[in-house]
């Protein structure tokens, strides 16, 4: 990411060097007995933290408007703190006010620019959240994302399902689950290789997450099993969605020699995520044994 920002890095280095040269030109070095260790420590730490922000912005954000605001804001802060630290080592003449202006003015301006950038970041995040619908509910933890399909994994499903169960119980609404299981995925892997299996999985997860409503979330529950949580959905609606998914999948499957999927739905009446998922496992097993799309009523 930092390669996109080569000019920015160059610019900040030039700016800091200019500040340093200016300070050396206008002032004279202090004697070492005049150094105040506590001041140096405090101002040095502030400078380091500000530099850290600058580094994080450069290394994590793609180029764009919001990045520019965040970057220039932090750069002004860094510049100001840098001069602040320098005057611990260099004494300026009383009548020259230039350095003290340069020292104190950029900081508030930088803060304002940074704040504007953060507002932009907030807006951008809202847009990204809209983009992520169907893949994410109330919780965000990037460590739980499955790296292959970019869907959340089983741990995330547990957490989200538990919360949804509690909400739905208190509000007396119905919560449904759809379980999707790939038929004979091990056999497909064996015939076509694991690489083909991986490609199939990532295409399938793209398709599934694009076909769900905004309130739903789909997770990769196991190697070849996906679970979709459908909040506030009646069994009838869930069944329609299951049929819709099945049709969509047939299009994907007919394009190549890919395995079929079994889709089973269930209404969640259990009080814990664990028992609900155990029930889901039973439901998918029964659906597989019947080998047709069936609605599994609550046992």
């Amino acid at each position: 990411m930092w390669r996109q920002h080569r000019y920015k890095i160059l610019l900040s280095l030039i700016l800091l060097v200019c500040g340093l040269l200016l300070a050396i030109n206008t002032g004279a070095a202090k004697h070492s007995s005049e150094f105040d260790a506590l001041d140096i420590l405090g101002e040095g730490t502030t400078l380091l933290v500000a530099c850290g922000w600058l580094g994080l912005i450069i290394s994590s954000r793609p180029a764009g408007r919001v990045t520019e605001w965040l970057y220039y804001g932090s750069l002004l802060l860094v510049f100001s703190y840098f001069l602040d630290l320098l005057d611990e080592f260099i004494r300026y003449q009383e009548q020259v006010r230039l350095m003290s202006w340069l020292e104190s003015l950029p900081a508030p301006v930088g803060m304002l620019v940074l704040t504007y950038g953060l507002v932009g970041w907030h807006r951008e995040q809202r847009a990204i959240n809209r983009q992520l619908r169907g893949r994410e509910l109330f919780l965000r933890d990037h460590q739980l994302i499955d790296p292959l399909t970019q869907l959340y994994g089983a741990d995330y499903l547990h957490a989200v399902l538990q919360r949804e169960i509690e909400l739905h119980l208190s509000q007396h609404r119905t919560l449904c689950l759809l379980v999707l299981d790939i038929d004979d995925f091990a056999g497909f892997n064996r015939r076509h290789g694991i690489a083909a299996g991986d490609t199939y999985l990532s295409r399938l997860s793209e398709l599934l997450s694009s076909q769900l409503r905004h309130s739903d979330v789909i997770c990769r529950y196991a190697g070849d099993r996906f679970v979709a949580v459908l909040p506030n959905t009646t069994p009838g609606q869930a069944q329609i969605m299951a049929q819709h998914l099945r049709q969509q999948i047939t299009q994907l499957v007919s394009a190549e020699e890919a395995p079929q999927l079994t889709v089973a739905g269930m209404t969640v009446q259990q009080r814990s995520a664990q028992t609900a998922l155990q029930q889901a496992d039973i439901a998918i097993k029964q659906a597989k044994a019947g080998n047709v799309l069936k609605w599994q009523p609550e046992l």
């Binding site: 460590q143 994302i145 790296p147 292959l148 994994g153 091990a186 892997n189």
Partner: peptide, 17 residues
């Protein structure tokens, strides 16, 4: 680098075949 618990199992299958 990866949080992918399935890695060992997939690798086992890949080796087998």
């Amino acid at each position: 680098q990866l949080n992918s618990p399935e890695l060992a199992y997939l690798l086992g299958n890949a080796l087998l075949n």
